[in-house]
């Protein structure tokens, strides 16, 4: 098993923390994982991305050429990273900010109004959790117990936020399962 994921969007959308949640979930399930953030000049321009590799074996390159899944949260990221999805891979688009239609053969394209769903759960900041839910729902990569454990642990300092976060994940998860 090896999964390569790229997540990209604006700074402040929770791109890096979404990647970290995936990394923590991987550790929780005793998998090898690397999380590599961009920290270069593109950050100064307000965009942000990270690459994650999950594997049963020791991970050699943490650099992702071709991704099994790309999650994009804004339009510049769609243009930059959608060509990096492998044939048969998953492309998850935050259609709240990228309303354009996007079709590509050999790809599973999941369009999800993450911002609106997140607002329903109490905060637009949960948009990244909606997208995480869609990824886990579609790929089945982590068990729901794992996600719950990781959320409880990582947000233990802000217990009031946890119900909204879990709800955002659940909404995304159910949509992801339908694809």
């Amino acid at each position: 098993m090896e999964q390569k994921i790229i997540i990209a969007g604006f700074g402040g959308q929770g791109v890096l923390s979404l990647g970290q949640l995936i990394a923590y979930a991987s550790i929780e399930e005793h998998k090898e994982v690397t999380w590599l953030p961009c920290y270069g000049p593109e950050m100064r321009g307000g965009t942000s991305n990270c690459s994650i590799v999950i594997s049963d074996k020791i991970i050699a390159s943490p650099i992702v050429d071709w991704a099994d899944c790309v999650i994009v949260m804004n339009r510049p990221s769609l243009e930059k990273f959608s060509p990096k999805v492998k044939a048969g891979g998953i492309l998850i688009i935050n259609s709240s900010l990228i309303p354009d239609s996007y079709e590509k053969a050999n790809l599973c394209v999941i369009k999800i109004k993450a911002n609106e769903f997140a607002e329903e759960t109490g905060s637009v900041k949960n948009a990244n959790l909606v997208l995480l839910g869609a990824y886990v729902g579609k790929s089945g990569i982590f068990s729901l117990e794992t996600i719950s454990t990781v959320i409880n642990e990582k947000f233990s300092g802000k217990p009031k936020l946890i119900p909204g976060i879990k709800e955002a994940f659940r909404i995304g998860y159910e949509i992801g399962q339908k694809y």
Binding site: Q20, V33, T34, I59
Partner: peptide
């Protein structure tokens, strides 16, 4: 290098 400093691993 910058990559080793910034990467997260177990």
């Amino acid at each position: 290098d910058g990559m080793l400093g910034q990467i997260m691993e177990a």
